[in-house]
Design a protein around this nucleic acid. Structure first.
Lengths: 337, 337
DNA sequence: ATGAAAGCGCTAACAA
DNA sequence: TTGTTAGCGCTTTCAT
C-alpha cells in the first residue's frame, strides 16, 4: 500500500470500484442489498488501497463516537493504574477507545477535562478514584457517567462502584487492636475523598467498640494531592521526632503505608515488634515492602469490570443499580504478625 | 442550564441569537468580522444554553482531531506510567487529548490499536516503551509517529527518544565489578525490546573490559510479557535451589530486581553482603525496596516531554532529529553498598 | 441490487 | 459587519 499524504475516502473507493458511495457503505457495514460480486469488487479496492473508514465522520453522522472518557487522579499509583488498565481493556473489548485524563485531584483541571470530553462527544465518562465530583449542571447533554472508587457528592445521582470502605477501615483497625495495639495512628490526606473518609469512620467505630479513644493527636494529615510516598515518610519522621507515641498505624493507602514503614526504619523503630502497620489497596507496594505489608484488598479488576458494564448499560439505555459495592478483605502479612 | 437530551448545536445558537451560523462560528473562534454587540449577544446565548462545540464535527471539517494516540505496554509499571502521565500532561497543555492503548507487548493487539487510532484520525501517535514496532506500510496516510523508549525495527525511519541504554548497562555492571562482584547474573525478558538488548551489550562490554566472562549460565530469562515481579521471584528462587552460583545481579528493570531481592531474602542470602543487586529505571520500587535498590536512573519526565515536542513538531510539519538520546545516571543505594 | 440526495455540526470562501 | 453556500466523510431514507 502506498504511503499517501492523505487517507483515501469512501467516495474514492466508490469511484475505483465503479459503484456508488452508498453501496460501499453497505458492503463495509454488511448491510445487505448488494450482490456478491459487488462485495468482492469493493473489498478488493479497499484492500488494495488500504482504505480505513473515517470514524470521525462516521461518528458525526451516527451521533456516537465509540470513545469513552476516563478521569483519574494519577495513573502513577498502582491501584489507580490497575483500575485504569482493566477498564481500558474491558472497553476495548467492546469496541470503545478511551481518552485518559489525569486530573491530579485538581477540581479546576477536572472540570476542564470534563468540558473537553463533552466537546469530543464521548459516549460516556468513567471517573476513577479521586475526590473531584461534578454537578449535574456541569454535565450537559445527558452524557452517561459512572464513578468507580469515587463517590458523587449527592449520592442519589450518579451510578457508582465502590468498595466496602467503612468495613475495610473497621477490619484493619480491629486487626491492629487484636494484635495488641492501643494507640493507633491514622494517616490520611488533608482533603480526602469520601471513600477515605468512610475508612476513617470504620477506624473510629472499631476503636469505640473496644473502648478506645480516637485521639486527635494520632491523626497525621498529608497535604499532597498525589504521590504521597515521600511526604508520608517525612511527616511521620517529624511526628516521631516530636515525641508522638503510638504502637500501630493505619494508613489510607499502601503508598502512605510504605512511606511510614521507611520512616519507622529510619528511626530505628521495629515493625511489627514496636509498631504494627496496616495499609489499604493491597497493591504491589505491599508485597514489595519489607516487612511485607498487611493491607486491605480491594479487587480492582472486578471494580473496573463492573464499572464498565455499568457505563455500557447506561449508554445502551439499560437501567442500572445506583450503587454496586465490592467487598474488601484483609490480607495479613509481616507488618502485623 | 437545563439537562437536555441532546447538546445544542451551532445552528440553534445562531437562531437564538438571531444571527447566521457563520457569525456564531466567527465569534467562537474569535475570527473578527463581527460587531462587539453581536459578540455579546452570541456569547450570552452560548452561556445561557451551555453550548459546547462539537469537536467531532469541527475535526471532520478541519481534518484534524486534536487527539493523540498512545500505545504503551502496561500503565501498571511505574516507569511506563510516569512516561504516560507526563506525556498526557504535556499534550493536554497543548490542547490535545490522548487515547490510551495498553497493548501488553502483544503485536496482534498493537496492530489492532494502530488501526483504531488511524480510523479515529488521530493527529499523531506516540509509542511508549515495549517491543512491538510497526512497518511503514502499516501506517497509512502519513500519520506522524514517534517512539519514546521504544526502538523502531529499521532505525532510519521513525523519530525516537531513547535512553543511553548501552551505557546504562555498562555502568551498572562496572559498578558491580568495582564492588567486588565476579559472577554477575543477568535477568531479562525472553524476547526483550531492543533497548533492553542494548543494556545486555553494555553488560557484556563491562565484563570484557575487566577480563571477565559472560557465562551463559548466569543469564536468567523470564517468559512474561508484563508485570514480571512474581515471575522474577520464582524463577530466581528456582535458580538458587538448583545451585546457581553468583555474587551479583543486574536486572533489566526495577520490577525484576525487586522480585529478585525477595527471592534472595527468602533463600537467606544477604544483600548486599552475599549478593549485590542493581536494577534499572530508578522507579519508585527502588526506593521502597529493602534494602533500597541501586538503579540506573532514566529521567522519564524529560523523555516524555521531548517525545511530545517531537510529535508536535512533526504534526506542525517542522523537521525533527531522528534520534534524541537522554542520558542515564547510576543511583547508588543499599543493595550494592 | 443500486443510486441520488439529504444531513450530522462545523469552517471558510465568497458575496453582499 | 454579516449571510449564503459548499463541502469534510459518512449513513440512511427513498426512489428506481
Amino acid at each position: 500500500m502506498a504511503k499517501s499524504s492523505k487517507p483515501i475516502s469512501m467516495r474514492e473507493v466508490a469511484e475505483l470500484a465503479g459503484v456508488s458511495i452508498a453501496t460501499v457503505s453497505r458492503v463495509i457495514n454488511d448491510n445487505g442489498r448488494f450482490s456478491e460480486e459487488t462485495r468482492k469488487r469493493v473489498e478488493r479496492v479497499i484492500e488494495e488501497n488500504g482504505y480505513i473508514a473515517n470514524q470521525a465522520a462516521k461518528g458525526l453522522r451516527e451521533a456516537r463516537t465509540r470513545t469513552i472518557g476516563m478521569i483519574i487522579p494519577d495513573i502513577t499509583n498502582d491501584f489507580f493504574s490497575t483500575l485504569a488498565l482493566q477498564a481500558e481493556r474491558a472497553f476495548a473489548d467492546e469496541g470503545y477507545s478511551v481518552l485518559i485524563c489525569n486530573d491530579a485531584n485538581d477540581a479546576e483541571r477536572g472540570r476542564h477535562y470534563l468540558r473537553t470530553l463533552i466537546s469530543k462527544r464521548v459516549d460516556g465518562i468513567i471517573c476513577i478514584s479521586g475526590r473531584t465530583t461534578f454537578d449535574e449542571h456541569e454535565v450537559p447533554g445527558n452524557v452517561p457517567i459512572v464513578y468507580v472508587d469515587r463517590f458523587p457528592e449527592r449520592a442519589d445521582e450518579i451510578p457508582r462502584v465502590i468498595s466496602e470502605d467503612l468495613e475495610g477501615g473497621r477490619i484493619a483497625t480491629e486487626h491492629l487492636i487484636e494484635r495488641g495495639c492501643r494507640r493507633i495512628a491514622f494517616m490520611t490526606g488533608t482533603h480526602s475523598a469520601q471513600s477515605v473518609q468512610s475508612r476513617g469512620i470504620g477506624y473510629a467505630r472499631a476503636l469505640e467498640a473496644h473502648g478506645l479513644e480516637a485521639d486527635p493527636a494520632l491523626r497525621i494529615e498529608l497535604e499532597g494531592r498525589v504521590r504521597r510516598f515521600r511526604e508520608a515518610r517525612e511527616t511521620l519522621a517529624g511526628a516521631i521526632a516530636s515525641g508522638m507515641e503510638f504502637d500501630g498505624i493505619f494508613a489510607m493507602n499502601d503508598v502512605i503505608a510504605v512511606g511510614a514503614l521507611l520512616a519507622l526504619r529510619d528511626a530505628g523503630i521495629r515493625v511489627p515488634g514496636d509498631v504494627k502497620v496496616v495499609g489499604f489497596d493491597d497493591s504491589i507496594y505491599s508485597s514489595i515492602a519489607t516487612p511485607a505489608l498487611t493491607s486491605v484488598r480491594r479487587f480492582p479488576e472486578q471494580m473496573a469490570k463492573r464499572g464498565c458494564d455499568m457505563l455500557l448499560s447506561l449508554i445502551d439505555g439499560t437501567p442500572v443499580e445506583l450503587e454496586d459495592i465490592v467487598p474488601v478483605e484483609l490480607v495479613v502479612r509481616e507488618s502485623t504478625q
